[in-house]
């Protein structure tokens, strides 16, 4: 094909259309991130905590989804896995358990660990299906951790640490087993 000026111009327009299409596609994730942030706020998470985490999650999801390839493929699994870690402590709080101080320990903290374990198992299974690739695993874990943090901060820093421990405890054995 002769690469004359009109063809080059058309190629540039087509490239712009492609990039805009990818951006439009990435923006479909916006409602899910907004919903997660609103759910955290509605469950009593302070706005000074929920908004920065939600903002960081949104930027990460949009950026990675727009970029595509393995990190882009990691966004939806990360959100789904993090959704479990988000929902567990919020459910505990919704049924009336007071997640504050020492009273938090019997339910909220274990809920964060269980949610994290579910997230870790989901991500590990998806990573194994793709062939364990750090370019998939790292973004998926980051997104799951941020999504889960929206809910697990209900138990303070211990909740987030507990969730991450759950992720590692459930995900690592699956990944190790897959490598063998």
């Amino acid at each position: 094909m002769a690469t004359n000026e009109p063809t080059l111009l058309l190629e540039r327009r087509a490239r712009r259309a492609y990039e805009l299409g990818r951006l439009r596609s990435a923006l479909r994730l916006l409602p899910f991130v907004v919903l997660a942030t609103v759910a955290a706020l509605a469950s009593g998470r302070p706005i000074t905590l929920a908004l920065p985490i939600g903002g960081a999650l949104l930027a990460l999801c949009l950026g990675l989804s727009f970029a595509g390839r393995a990190p882009g493929r990691a966004v939806v699994p990360g959100l789904l896995a993090g959704g479990a870690a988000l929902v567990m402590p919020l459910l505990v709080a919704t049924v009336g358990h007071a997640c504050f101080g020492p009273a938090c320990m019997p339910f909220c903290l274990p809920a964060c660990v269980v949610g994290g374990a579910i997230a870790g198992a989901v991500i590990a299974r998806m990573a194994v299906a793709q062939g364990p690739d750090p370019a998939f695993l790292a973004p998926a874990l980051a997104i799951a951790a941020l999504t889960g943090s929206l809910g697990c901060t209900i138990s303070g820093a211990a909740g987030v640490v507990g969730m991450l421990a759950g992720v590692v405890a459930a995900g690592a054995p699956l990944l190790v087993a897959a490598r063998r």
Binding site: L10, R13, A14, R15, A17, Y18, L20, G21, R22, R24, S25
Partner: peptide, 14 residues
């Protein structure tokens, strides 16, 4: 053809 080409690339993510 130009319109179709732009549309094809715009929807390549789908």
């Amino acid at each position: 053809a130009q319109g179709a080409l732009l549309r094809v690339f715009s929807r390549a993510s789908e």
